[in-house]
């Protein structure tokens, strides 16, 4: 598996955001699928997060302007959901399942190991900007517990050794 790293645009470059032609084309493709422009706030934010790595206030303003909403409203939406990043994320975001099935099948050891190896707690980034640790609830893959989601990919049936190998590979590749 080759998990694609997140390339976060630095805050300075996201103060004022204008959508380029490719972005506009993607938005135009999205809009007809929704009854109102307001209904398209979530997918347009996703597009932005894929493109910029995170949602800065500048991105919020651009999305609000594009969809005819107020920036305050769009920012409220962003703040409601935990999966929108409101600060530049690390290259690899490790979402570790902490719910029952994974916890029983070794998830707790994974969490302890990750915290020790990376030297960070949930919600933090390593100083080199490589890894970010997030504790999450059930990822819906109890049959293959324990599970860690790295960016968009699931890594299943893990143990400490497998996880170390994955992290070594990801760290080495960059």
């Amino acid at each position: 598996m080759s998990t694609r790293p997140i390339v976060a645009v630095p805050p300075e470059a996201l103060r004022i955001v204008t959508f380029d032609a490719a972005m506009e084309a993607s938005i135009a493709e999205l809009l007809p699928r929704y009854p109102t422009r307001r209904a398209a706030v979530l997918p347009v934010l996703w597009l932005c997060q894929e493109r910029f790595g995170w949602i800065s206030p500048g991105v919020v303003r651009a999305v609000a302007a594009r969809l005819g909403e107020s920036p305050a409203f769009v920012e409220g939406v962003v703040s409601f959901y935990t999966m929108y990043q409101t600060a530049p994320p690390a290259r690899y975001v490790l979402q570790v399942c902490t719910t029952l099935s994974c916890a029983w099948c070794g998830g707790r050891e994974l969490v302890a190991h990750l915290k020790e190896r990376l030297g960070i707690s949930f919600g933090e980034k390593t100083p080199d900007g490589m890894f970010q640790l997030v504790g999450v609830q059930c990822l819906g893959a109890c049959g293959t517990a324990p599970v860690v989601q790295i960016n968009d990919d699931y890594y299943e049936n893990l143990d400490v050794a497998k996880l170390d190998a994955i992290l070594d590979e990801l760290a080495g590749r960059s």
Partner: peptide
């Protein structure tokens, strides 16, 4: 949202 039209306030979190 409905009266002054600025939609300047919102819920967060």
């Amino acid at each position: 949202r409905e009266i002054s039209g600025t939609a300047a306030l919102t819920y967060k979190s």
